[in-house]
């Protein structure tokens, strides 16, 4: 290898982007060429300084505590300014399942080591269970696992192990629900139960109350949930879509090659629920703001709300 060619490959070598054959060839050249070796060391030092500086300056920064409330206000303005687009703003289940697929497979945009640290939003649907035992075995104590029982079975969902947050789940559910989805991250839990055939829906959002969040209860009918002040807003209309697109071929193709448990096929497709008599129940419990949207009766909503209890945490070491 000539020096001119070697020097075009020094940075890819430092970045781990050469093939094994290219790397061997270049390493050999570096052992015999002092000049290229010195340049290699200089570039290595430069890259180390850049990497260290970027991390040192950025990592201590946290998004402002007011960021969500400001964004929420902006979103509200946007939505009111463009009412005709309201129903198109659905975050489809597929988006979260895509995130999940990437996390479980060490997907294309996240390195495996980082994926677990960033793990936050997981969705499961009962009857279409995501296969997680092998994943639990891999990540050990990095995550806290919670079990959620749904109308047709149960599933396990994780948040980072450092999070002091226990999601609440209903211990009472009226009959008729057939599907469940759970989304978790360090600050939010979102539980959805639905039956597309009967157009029945129950969505429970639990958000940790921060100093800056807007925690005031909305205007509406004043009620009590387990003795705590609550507000019920009625007459809400919603059109809620659960859409599952096929898994990303790219994500599957770019796995690291390590043997992994396959994901069970997910078959929630194109379910749409139109709600014409929706109610929103809002209250605070255990440092959480809880918002429950449903077309159940008022009495049933209160009964579900009062049944909320911490989700079961799975503490045993999973078998490999």
């Amino acid at each position: 290898m000539k020096c001119a060619e070697a020097r075009t490959k020094l940075i890819p070598l430092l970045d781990g982007e050469l093939t094994p054959a290219e790397e061997a060839q270049l390493q050999h050249h570096l052992t015999i060429c002092v000049s290229c070796r010195q340049q290699y060391l200089a570039l290595q030092t430069t890259i180390q300084m850049v990497r260290s500086t970027l991390h040192s300056r950025a990592e201590p920064l946290e998004a402002p505590a007011t960021a969500w409330s400001h964004l929420e206000a902006r979103l509200s303005q946007e939505i009111h300014a463009a009412p005709s687009e309201q129903d198109t703003h659905h975050l489809h289940l597929s988006s979260f399942l895509e995130i999940l697929t990437n996390l479980l497979k060490g997907g294309s945009a996240m390195r495996r080591g980082k994926a677990w640290a960033a793990l936050a939003v997981l969705m499961i649907t009962i009857g279409v269970m995501i296969s997680v035992p092998a994943v639990r075995a891999q990540v050990g104590g990095l995550l806290r696992w919670f079990r959620f029982e749904g109308p047709a079975g149960g599933g396990e969902v994780a948040v980072p192990g450092s999070v002091e947050f226990t999601p609440l789940r209903p211990t009472y559910l009226p009959a008729g629900f057939q599907a469940m989805a759970v989304g978790l991250n360090p600050e939010v839990a979102s539980l959805s139960y639905w039956n597309a055939a009967t157009q029945q829906i129950l969505i429970i959002d639990e958000t940790r109350m921060g100093r800056s969040q807007q925690n005031a209860l909305p205007s509406g009918k004043r009620m009590k949930v387990n003795g705590q002040p609550a507000v019920l807003v009625t007459g809400l209309q919603r059109n809620i879509s659960f859409v599952q697109l096929p898994p990303t071929p790219e994500a599957a193709a770019q796995t690291s090659g390590e043997p992994e448990e396959p994901l069970a096929p997910v078959t929630v497709t194109g379910e749409n629920i139109a709600v014409f008599d929706g109610k929103l129940l809002v209250w605070h419990a255990d440092g959480m703001r809880i918002e429950m949207f449903s077309n159940l009766s008022e009495e049933e909503m209160i009964k579900v709300a009062e049944s909320l209890a911490p989700a079961e945490e799975i503490l045993d070491t999973p078998a490999p």
Binding site: H80, L91, S192, I203, P218, L236, I240, E291
Partner: peptide, 13 residues
Amino acid sequence: GIHHAGQDPYTQA
């Protein structure tokens, strides 16, 4: 609050 009339609460959550 997070929800507004006509807005999809699932989307918001």
